[in-house]
C-alpha cells in the first residue's frame, strides 16, 4: 500500500467509524470511542435554528457514577473534569458535556471535541480507589491539602520498645499536633488485626502523648466498606480519638481543635 493510498483509506475509513441515526428528537452519533469498561460513547445532536448542540446528554458522568462506591465526586475529580472541558472547549451544563456547532463550524470537529472530552472525563475511572491506583490514604492526603493542614505523610517514629512505626500522617496545627493512623481494609477477617496493629502502635508511641508538646493520637477508620465491628472501634478508643472517613468534617474538627 502506497502512502497516498494509506491516506485515502484513512480518509474513507475514519468517517465510516461514526454512524448517525435519528433518535427521538435527536440525531444519535455512535462514535468508535469507548468508556473504560467497553461501553460505546454516543453523542446526541439537536438543532435550534442555525445552531446545533452536540451533547452526551449526561451519559459520561452517569457512567462514572455507576462505577464508583463514593456517593459524590471529590473536589480533585471535579477539578480534573473542569480541566478536560477547558482543554477541549466543551461546556459542562447540568452534568452534560456539550458544545455548540454554529454556522460555519464543522459538525465533525465539534463532535470530535465532545467525544474527546467524554473520553478524558471517563478516564477519571482509573483514579477510583477500587482500581488500585489511589488508596484511601491518598484521599486523606488530598483532603488535608484542601483544608490547608500542614502535614507530613508517612512519619517514621520510634516506639518505647525500640520498634519503628510509620504513622500515616503527622498533622501540625497551632493548638496541638496530631498523629493519624488510617485504618483501612476490604476484608472483615483482616479488620481486627488492623485495629490491633494500630492499638500496638499507639501503646508503643504513648511517650509522645505526654509533655508540653504532647501529640494527639487520631484513629481514622475507612468506613466506606462495612467491615468494622464495634469492638474494633473500642480497641483503639482508650488511646486515640476515633474518627470516620465517612464524616470528613468531624475528622478535620478533631485535628483543628485544642487539646
Amino acid at each position: 500500500m502506497s502512502v497516498t493510498n494509506m491516506c485515502a483509506d484513512l480518509q474513507r475509513g475514519l468517517g465510516e467509524l461514526f454512524s448517525c441515526a435519528p433518535h427521538g428528537e435527536f440525531q444519535c452519533i455512535r462514535t468508535p470511542y469507548l468508556y473504560p469498561d467497553g461501553d460505546n460513547i454516543d453523542l446526541f445532536v439537536k438543532a435550534n435554528g442555525d445552531v446545533a448542540s452536540v451533547s452526551d446528554l449526561g451519559e459520561t458522568l452517569r457512567w462514572l457514577r455507576t462505577q464508583t462506591v463514593s456517593p459524590r465526586r471529590s473536589p480533585k475529580q471535579n477539578a480534573l473534569i473542569a480541566d478536560a472541558c477547558l482543554t477541549h472547549g466543551v461546556e459542562l451544563y447540568k452534568g452534560m458535556l456539550l458544545a455548540r456547532c454554529r454556522p460555519g463550524d464543522s459538525l465533525a470537529e465539534v463532535t470530535l471535541r465532545v467525544a474527546q472530552a467524554c473520553l478524558r472525563v471517563s478516564d477519571l475511572w482509573f483514579t477510583f480507589r477500587t482500581r488500585a491506583v489511589e488508596s484511601v490514604t491518598d484521599e486523606v492526603a488530598d483532603f488535608l491539602m484542601e483544608r490547608q493542614f500542614s502535614f507530613e505523610h508517612g512519619a517514621k517514629l520510634l516506639g518505647r520498645s525500640g520498634r519503628g512505626w510509620t504513622v500515616d500522617f503527622h498533622v501540625r496545627v497551632p493548638a496541638q499536633s496530631s498523629l493519624v493512623y488510617v485504618l483501612s481494609t476490604g476484608s472483615r477477617s483482616a479488620a481486627r488485626s488492623v485495629a490491633e496493629h494500630v492499638l500496638a502502635a499507639w501503646y508503643d508511641l504513648s511517650h509522645l502523648a505526654a509533655g508540653p508538646e504532647a501529640l494527639r493520637f487520631v484513629s481514622l477508620f475507612d468506613d466506606t466498606a462495612d467491615v468494622w465491628t464495634p469492638e474494633d472501634f473500642r480497641l483503639v478508643e482508650p488511646l486515640s480519638a476515633v474518627t470516620r472517613w465517612s464524616q470528613p468534617d468531624e475528622f478535620a474538627q478533631v485535628l483543628a481543635e485544642a487539646a
Partner: peptide, 10 residues
C-alpha cells in the same frame, strides 16, 4: 436527582 442536577436519576 443526581449530584450534577442532570436529567439523570439515581
Amino acid at each position: 436527582m443526581d449530584e450534577d442536577h442532570s436529567p439523570c436519576l439515581d
